[in-house]
Structures are given as C-alpha cells and as structure tokens.
Design a protein around this nucleic acid. Structure first.
Length: 205
DNA sequence: ACATTAATTGTGT
DNA sequence: ACACAATTAATGT
C-alpha cells in the first residue's frame, strides 16, 4: 500500500520533491526525541508512525498516528515557532518517507498554496483527534475506553483482532493488568474470546 | 523431537 | 501498582 500524496500538491511543489531524499526505516526507529529541535520533517509515503508522550515514570500515551500521505504536525509547528519537540515519534512498521529539511517547510509555507492547505488540514485533523483523546481520558471510565477501542479495532480488523493486552493498555494509557482483567470479564460474559495475542469478538459490545 | 528462552497472560497482595 | 507464577509461542540444538 502506498499513498499517492502527489495528487495533493501543485506541480511546482511536486517538482521540488525530486530534490528531497527518500529513506526507508525499520520498525521501532525513533525519528524524533522529546525536547530536541527539529531539523527535518518527515512526509510519510508508506507505513505508519506513532507520536507519543512519555512521563517521568515511563508511562506512555499515544497522542496520534501519522498515516500514509501525512506529515508530523508537531514537528512542523515546533519548527515554525522555534520550539523544542514535546513528544517522540517512532515508526510502527517498516516505513518509507521523504525527509524534508525543515527550512524548506518554511519556504513552502510562503510559496505554495497547496502546502499551506495541507498543513492546515493536518493541523485540524490532529487537533480533532487530540480532542477525542482528551474527551475519552477525562470523561470515560476505563472499561468504556477498552470497549470503545475494541469497537474501533473491529472496524479495522474484523472480529478477530490481533493485539496483546499490553498494546491495548498503552493505547488507552492504563496498566496491562487492568486491561487483562476487563477482557477476562468480557470473556466470561461470552462477548469475546481470548487467545494469546488475539481477541475475538463474538457478539456486539 | 526436545530443551531453552522469550513473550504474554494470570493472580495475589 | 507491583511482583511473581503460569502458560504459550518461538528459537536453538
């Protein structure tokens, strides 16, 4: 799978892409650490990148994901405002991307309407995702969040979801045991069945 | 095929 | 939340 990101931009800007180096990174490569200045901006062609925040105790929460054809809005805005990065970015799969020198991004902001539109759209959609995240953290109980997440994963994977309790827990921002116990309850109620690394949804949650 | 190790899941406090 | 036990999958020999 590969995103045809070129359709988003005007021809002149696409011509500029020719100058931009393309790299391929393995899974779990740390693209960006917290509290560093940004020098390059990724434009993801294939794969996916998670942006997460880790606190002092090592607890982490995933803020959002960068999908194919998208870039990292945190990097862009951090750079444009000359601030340090407040989160870290890690590849979730083997991924291919263009690596845009950050100064180019500023040039493009000035010179290309399609780039400005791209950045603003990205900004909006990420902000919306963050609001959803805040909403789920502050207003919903843990068990509701697990169920919501399962429903979401069901849309992506169907009723057989390949995921570990640990991964589910970090997505939601809670401890693995909490998730394990909740899932066990759902299993006892015959809503799901559990296997190592797999959750099967039997009937609607 | 068997033993060893690592990863995941379960349980008690 | 933490520590540890139990189970299952992966890997080496």
């Amino acid at each position: 799978m590969q995103h045809n990101f070129k359709s988003l931009f005007e021809p002149q800007l696409i011509a500029e892409f020719e100058e931009i180096p393309e790299i391929e990174l393995d899974k779990d490569f740390v693209l960006l650490k917290e509290n560093t200045y940004i020098k390059e901006i990724p434009l993801l062609i294939e794969g996916s990148i998670k942006v997460r925040k880790t606190d002092e105790t090592g607890k982490e929460i995933i803020l959002y994901r960068i999908e194919e054809g998208e870039s990292c809005i945190l990097s862009i805005t951090s750079y444009l405002n000359e601030k340090q990065s407040r989160a870290e970015a890690i590849t979730e799969q083997k991924s291919r991307m263009l690596v845009i020198p950050a100064y180019k991004v500023r040039e493009w902001m000035d010179n290309y309407r399609s780039w400005r539109k791209f950045v603003l759209q990205l900004y909006y959609s990420r902000l919306e995702e963050l609001l959803t995240l805040v909403d789920s953290i502050s207003f919903k109980q843990i068990d509701m969040r697990v169920i919501d997440k399962l429903k979401e994963l069901q849309i992506k994977h169907g009723s057989i979801i390949p995921i570990t309790h640990q991964k589910l827990a970090t997505e939601i921002g809670t401890a693995r045991e909490v998730v394990s116990r909740l899932l066990k309850q759902l299993e006892n109620n015959h809503l799901i069945t559990l296997e190592r690394g797999i959750i099967k949804i039997l009937r609607p949650l």
